[in-house]
Amino acid sequence: PCPVAPSSRSSQEVWESFSQCFTPAVKEVVEFAKSIPGFQTLSQHDQVMLLKSGTFQVLMVRFCSLFDPKERTVTFLNGQTYSLASLRALGMGSLLDAMFDFSEKLASLGLEQDEMALFMAVVLVSADRSGIVEVGAVEQLQENLIKALRSLITSRRPDDSTLFPKLLLRLPDLRTLNNQHSEKLLAFRID
């Protein structure tokens, strides 16, 4: 739910309410990660590092369902729909454009909910390894999750051998989104 403002509020206030949106969304990714089979067998340090480098990318996948690439609108969980143009005032134009493109490609694959969830688990454990101590353990977990994703997708679409590779090709897209946009500024009012 994102209380993005009616037009009467200043873009600063709009920006603050938009920034507030991220906090619950990030917490949900942390809970999601803990539910991934094997994630909590990693060291606490490596769990934190993977979350720090992968959460933005998981959020990008989760937010895709809010984006309507055809209408160029975003509908928040509170039902409020905004056009791309109105959201540009928040100064996130380039991120929003990239999000529309990414969500169009992902939506075209037509994944089921459980396939999307497993894909998000793969996204998280495929995140940047620079801070990881036990790389082998993370790579083993990634391999297991990719195997599970492949068998789930191929079992449902035995005659479509292109979907799985197309899905894995979204991983570099997400990494680019992350490198280009995770340094965007948020603003929090401190009274």
Partner: peptide
């Protein structure tokens, strides 16, 4: 006067994750 704390998305995400793991220690 209202003051503002500005941080990057990445830092905001890191902050929430660190807080969560510290709380559940």
């Amino acid at each position: 006067p209202k003051t503002h704390r500005v941080m990057t998305l990445a830092d905001h995400i890191s902050h929430i994750i660190t807080q969560d793991f510290a709380r559940n220690q």
